[in-house]
Design a protein around this nucleic acid. Structure first.
Length: 320
DNA sequence: TGGTATGTTCCAAA
DNA sequence: TTTTGGAACATACC
């Protein structure tokens, strides 16, 4: 589920439990997602104390006391949970967000169990989807769930290797309308794939891109170098406001994986095909853009920029 | 059964 | 050279 707001939520929810703790051991059940290899990562992490937990784009970063860095990317289905190793039927909570009674699983302390009939869910996660865990000096285990195995666990002594090619943080003070204009006009690409490009703006994903474009009244297929200053200012404001709202609501919860926040109740286009646009009342339409499901209001997001509503609410005149 | 999925990367083609 | 399309990764749900 993870885009910038979800990753930020996870970092905030787990920071207190991780910073200051020493890593006793690291175990992986899916070596392919660990680089530069499980054995080397195990050696690098053993005995190290976590001095900070941070987010860069969609990466979760662990700063270690010897200067090393561990990055975790959740990709499509990754999430964190907790288990106490001492318990055979440990209580585990997703992302460290307490959800009493939500789930108990013995597998939390014994990852990747065979199908023992224990299908208990850990706040939406299943015990057999624990792909790795970090055991800490307080006896607790940070669990890495990842049903689809797309996630990545990367240790490096040079963070630039991982984050060096990432674009601007959209909530950073350096992300100004002028900065956005420079990035949009330096290329001639459709708006949506450009916004999804992590080397341009780091942290937007499919949901928040659709939402930002709708809030800005811009069609996802508009050419990036065709926006006037006014449109760019709208887009800049829309990106920041939708990301901030996502963080404020603790992220978006969708489908069978990753219980999170309540942002899904406030999405205006994503996943709302056929439903009424909250702005104009017209029907939300699904498109395919850059191989991604895309949701727009055709009335609020005209394909030709010049046809856009003159003010923020003119289109409402067409409703009902 | 087939289509779709919150992400990224690589390669081919335009 | 830049941009786009398609496939791949691997699994689960509807």
């Amino acid at each position: 589920m993870p885009e910038l707001p979800e990753v930020e939520t996870i970092v905030r929810a787990n920071r207190d439990a991780l910073v200051g703790r020493r890593i006793v051991r690291f175990v992986s059940h899916w070596p392919r997602q660990v680089s530069p290899g499980v054995a080397r990562v195990q050696r690098a992490l053993r005995g190290r104390t976590i001095t900070a937990l941070f987010r860069r784009a969609k990466f979760i970063g662990f700063e270690l006391d010897d200067g090393g860095r561990l990055f975790v990317h959740l990709r499509m289905s990754g999430s964190f949970g907790w288990a106490d190793r001492a318990r055979s039927a440990a209580r585990a909570t997703a992302r460290g967000t307490a959800r009493a009674g939500d789930a108990r699983t013995r597998a939390a302390g014994a990852p990747a169990p065979s199908a023992s009939g224990d299908s208990a869910r850990v706040a939406g996660e299943r015990a057999e989807h624990v792909r790795a865990f970090w055991e800490l000096d307080d006896g607790r285990r940070l669990l890495f769930f990842d049903a689809r195995k797309f996630g990545r666990i990367i240790f490096t002594r040079d963070p630039h290797e991982v984050t060096g090619k990432l674009g601007v943080e959209p909530l950073d003070s350096t992300f100004t309308p002028a900065a956005l204009a420079g990035r949009l006009r330096a290329r001639r690409r459709s708006l949506k794939p450009l916004l999804l490009d992590q080397a341009v703006i780091a942290g937007l994903g499919n949901i928040y891109t659709d939402e930002a474009l709708h809030r800005a009244g811009l069609h996802p297929l508009l050419a990036s170098d065709a926006l006037d200053d006014h449109a760019i200012r709208r887009l800049h404001g829309a990106i920041r406001s939708v990301l901030r709202e996502g963080i404020r609501r603790n992220g978006t919860t969708l489908d069978w994986i990753y219980p999170s926040g309540r942002m899904q109740d406030y999405l205006r286009v994503y996943g709302r095909t056929g439903q009424a646009c909250t702005t104009c009342g017209g029907a939300i339409v699904a498109l395919r853009v850059a191989q991604r499901g895309t949701h727009i209001c055709p009335r609020c997001q005209p394909a030709r920029p010049g046809a856009r509503r003159a003010n923020g609410r003119a289109a409402a005149a067409y409703a009902s």
